[in-house]
């Protein structure tokens, strides 16, 4: 019995104890090393971060904490660089785009006029001698001075273009995308971002102002419309609001019809059709087809009286056409009422 106990001790308990002791001692050693190096590592990281910030925004003496701002429903972080007197001299944005072999991160410094001061690539892990060249000054130096949005070219770079690294189009495009994101974020931060157009403005971009909402009745239903006025106060179009049953929800359409009865433009309000299918009826390509038409419209090939449906979204397209046709029917009442 005692021999049995001894073998249990030797085979099970002793190994467990030994392993526990080794693990504890190792953990102790690690804790001691960590205590000795933690502060240095933290200081290194901060120093490195400050260095990388100052490198691309040399005018700045100090940098703010990370600030948050929203663009297209996504929050992003940015840093303000200030000079000795505390005046903001520029902003730094950091964005990543999937590249050839992992994320391509761009650090973009933009001055208060919206021009790029400098860019840098962080943690680049692309193919050596190919994608990695995106991180070389030859490529990065092209960005300084640009503003707005930059395009990529394989030829010699023209206005607002940069030349891609030969053989590394994917990495170059990923970096460029990260830079462009920074430029868009700058616009949001500096308040220079274009306000999204209201549906009325979309339907009739030439109008300077819109009248109050007016109503018109037909077959017992009440419809609303607005008058679009030009800069000199003259009437340029009636914007008639109609709706028709779509695939998911009613499709609400604003149709801008000029006093001659010709369609000037269309727009949708709160479109809720299937993303990438029905939703395409709210895109320029589909809506553009209606411009210039004045009589009842059908679906078919594009002609004076018909428009082409969005492929695989016939129900949504039909709903849109129905709504526009309703507006065309209402037009005599609306224009008659106004004059």
């Amino acid at each position: 019995m005692s021999e049995n106990k001894k073998s249990v001790f030797n085979e099970i308990i002793r190994p467990a104890l030994v392993l526990t002791v080794i693990t504890l001692v190792t953990a102790l050693c690690l804790a001691l090393t960590n205590a000795g190096t933690k502060e240095v590592i933290k200081a290194n990281a901060e120093k490195e971060l400050l260095r990388s910030k100052q490198e691309i925004l040399p005018a700045a003496e100090a940098f703010s904490e990370e600030k948050e701002e929203e663009l297209n429903g996504k929050t992003f972080k940015y840093i303000e660089g200030t000079d000795a007197s505390g005046e903001i001299v520029g902003y730094i944005f950091q964005n990543s785009t999937p590249g050839y072999n992992g994320p391509v991160t761009a650090l973009v410094a933009i001055d208060t006029e919206g021009k790029i001061v400098d860019v840098n690539a962080l943690d680049l892990n692309e193919t050596p001698n190919v994608g990695m060249l995106v991180g070389e000054r030859d490529f990065l130096d092209q960005f300084a001075g640009h503003s707005g949005e930059i395009a990529l070219t394989k030829e010699k770079a023209a206005e607002n273009e940069v030349q891609a690294v030969t053989g590394a189009t994917i990495s170059s495009a990923a970096f460029l995308n990260s830079v462009n994101e920074g430029l868009a974020q700058y616009a949001a931060v500096s308040g220079n971002a274009p306000e999204p157009l209201s549906p009325e403005e979309q339907a009739c971009p030439d109008a300077a102002e819109f009248s109050e909402e007016k109503t018109v009745e037909k077959d017992g239903n009440t419809y609303t419309y607005k008058e679009a006025l030009g800069e000199d106060g003259s009437l340029i179009a009636y914007i008639i609001r109609t709706e028709s049953k779509g695939y998911h929800a009613p499709v609400i359409v604003l149709t801008a019809i000029d006093p001659d009865g010709t369609i000037q433009g269309t727009a949708t309000v709160d479109l809720q059709e299937t993303p990438n299918l029905g939703s395409k009826i709210g895109e320029e390509e589909f809506m553009q087809q209606f411009v210039g038409k004045s009589s009842e419209i059908s679906l078919g090939t594009l002609s004076d009286t018909s428009v082409e449906a969005v492929s695989n979204a016939t129900i949504s397209s039909k709903a849109f056409v129905d709504a526009v046709n309703q507006a065309l029917e209402l037009f005599p009442l609306v224009s008659g009422g106004a004059s």
């Binding site: 190994p15 190792t26 690690l30 240095v40």
Partner: peptide
């Protein structure tokens, strides 16, 4: 001191300990 049955985990623990220490030192200095 290390029983034969647990020698591999014991070795790995020791090695991992040293590697982490080296890593911290390299990161710091």
């Amino acid at each position: 001191f290390i029983p034969n049955t647990v020698r591999i985990p014991a070795y790995i623990t020791v090695i991992a300990g040293f590697v982490t220490i080296v890593q911290m030192v390299i990161k710091a200095f």
